[in-house]
Write a protein that binds this DNA or RNA. Structure first.
Lengths: 238, 238
DNA sequence: ATAGTATTGGAACGTCGTTCCAGTCCTGTC
DNA sequence: GACAGGACTGGAACGACGTTCCAATACTAT
């Protein structure tokens, strides 16, 4: 009836917001945050900068869209039907691994807190906390603690990826930082020096998970301390 | 004896690394991270860019030096002789307040982990954890969890300061974000929507401290779980 | 076929970090 | 008190960036 032919595709290689975001993710993954320039993106897509700006407002929106896309992909993958506690660990590990592959995401997560990426993380963690039986009064603080911890690790991993060459592996990087820690003044930095050895041999991923468990244990003390729910007996399990 | 007159001062308004870093902090505090350009800095100091680059390698070093300076100031202020647990809370709150005043520090902390700023934070938190009686095997993971949580909050606060105009107060900002959360699809974001009200009325600082307490509580379960130390009876108190 | 809109590619603008360099200041030596 | 030489300064200039502008082209509806 009406005349709305509803966007017939132009030609197969036509530019689109999706294609631009996908190309941006490719560049970010292979060259890091510094490699994503509008010129590089235009070259990658064999077009000009004007064409890109017709589909995307500015570089910030591009980075935000790329981040949302990566996070949304992670969150849909870790859906799982396990117990709440395991689900929280799975979500956290999924985020850790995603940022390991796309370090730039760790930086971008610190953007506007109402962006889809951030909302999905809060919802995913918070929803599982409810399922765990955390009393209502403690839910906000508990979710905040978990999410901020995850953000902190994410940002740190992104920074680490930024500072060392993309080809050097993690163990070589840790060894060099550990050596710097070990060379510190023992009078000024006794604790850091003691940790140097453990730093060299430690596993980032396992330590991240240990932090999650530590926070969950802390949340557990709140729950058993003053709540009326029986431990581990929440009816819902997402 | 020797001819080393050891740097007699030039004239009172002479440029120096310290004066440049101090000017950079002023600009960062008043105008945010985007306001610090080499040209603005040169104008502020009534000189040219070449003169600045004679004292400072590049902008990165300048930001790192400014961050180290602010953090060192905080750490010396919160020294305190209280009990370890209170000392950790004091250090954390000191960092929170410093980043509240200098939001750009929250971004810069995610730099090289061997910079003085980061080392001082790790040492300060870790040393107090030892004093608390945390068993050696758990010290590294515990310090890591606390520091990463602090970093996460710092980064988030820095991002918030970046996004809203410097004159709008925190409560107005929270209200606007809470409104966005409240307008979300209840089917997709049930938890976030429930938290919208609490977000509007919550106190960032108190919630930050609640997170610290949660992690400390988690660390406490490790200590009492497998260690031989009696609770709260560590002999040393920094 | 033609008019009108959607989309494109690339030139051009202003700003940034950084480098370069001619000049100036200051100090130590005679 | 002249002067050589290093310390230090100020600003012009360079290349790269994000963004805007616009003539040219591709496509759609009539």
């Amino acid at each position: 009836m009406a005349k709305k032919t509803h966007r017939i595709e132009r030609r197969t290689d036509a530019l689109s917001r999706e294609r631009i975001v996908a190309a941006a993710i490719e560049i970010l993954d292979s060259g890091g945050e510094g490699a994503l320039t509008v010129r590089a993106l235009a070259a990658h897509l064999a077009t000009g900068s004007g064409a890109i700006y017709w589909h995307v407002a500015d570089k910030g929106e591009l980075l935000a869209a790329a981040t949302d896309e990566v996070i949304a992909r992670v969150m849909s993958e870790v859906a799982g039907g396990t117990k709440p506690r395991e689900a929280i660990r799975a979500v956290a590990l999924g985020l850790f691994d995603a940022i390991d592959v796309h370090p730039w995401v760790g930086t971008q997560l610190f953007r506007e807190p109402w962006r889809p990426a951030m909302l999905e993380i809060i919802e995913s963690v918070g929803g599982r906390l409810q399922a765990l039986g955390v009393p209502h009064a403690a839910q906000f603080d508990s979710a905040s603690a978990l999410v901020h911890y995850i953000l902190g690790v994410a940002g740190q991993n992104a920074a680490n990826a930024r500072v060392h060459a993309p080809d050097t592996d993690r163990s070589a990087f840790l060894t060099s930082v550990a050596a710097q820690w070990d060379a510190l003044d023992p009078a000024k930095y006794p604790f850091v020096r003691q940790m140097a050895t453990q730093l060299r041999d430690h596993d980032d991923r396992a330590q991240f998970l240990a932090g999650i468990d530590l926070i969950l244990a802390g949340i557990g003390t709140v729950r058993s301390g003053g709540a009326d729910e029986p431990p581990d007996a929440a009816p819902i399990s997402i």
